[in-house]
Simulated assay, not measured.
Amino acid sequence: MFKVPAGPEGEYHIQDIYGNIRRVATVDEIRSLRNPKSYSPALAEDAIRAFNGMGPWLEAYDEMLADWDEIHGLAE
Rank of each mutant, 00 (worst) to 15 (best):
G10N: 03
E59P: 07
N52I: 10
P41W: 10
A6R: 11
G55S: 04
D69V: 02
Y39M: 05
V4W: 01
I17E: 15
Y12W: 06
G10S: 01
P56C: 06
I48R: 11
E45A: 12
D69S: 04
F51H: 08
L74E: 09
Y61F: 05
F51M: 14
E45D: 14
R22G: 00
W68Q: 10
R49I: 11
L74H: 11
Y61N: 04
G53P: 10
F2S: 03
D46A: 15
T26G: 06
E45F: 13
P41R: 12
E29I: 04
F51I: 07
M54P: 02
D46C: 07
P41Y: 11
L58I: 05
N35I: 14
P5C: 11
G10V: 01
D67F: 02
N52L: 15
A42W: 04
G19D: 09
I14E: 08
N52S: 10
A47S: 11
G7L: 01
G7A: 04
Y12Q: 02
S40E: 13
R22H: 13
A66E: 14
R23P: 00
D67N: 03
P56R: 08
R34Q: 10
P8Y: 04
A44F: 03
G10W: 01
F2I: 03
I48E: 11
S40Q: 04
A50W: 12
D62Y: 04
I14W: 08
A75R: 07
A75Y: 00
E11K: 06
G7I: 02
V24W: 09
L58C: 07
Y61I: 00
N20S: 06
E29V: 06
E59T: 13
M1E: 13
M1Q: 15
P56T: 09
G53S: 09
I21Y: 12
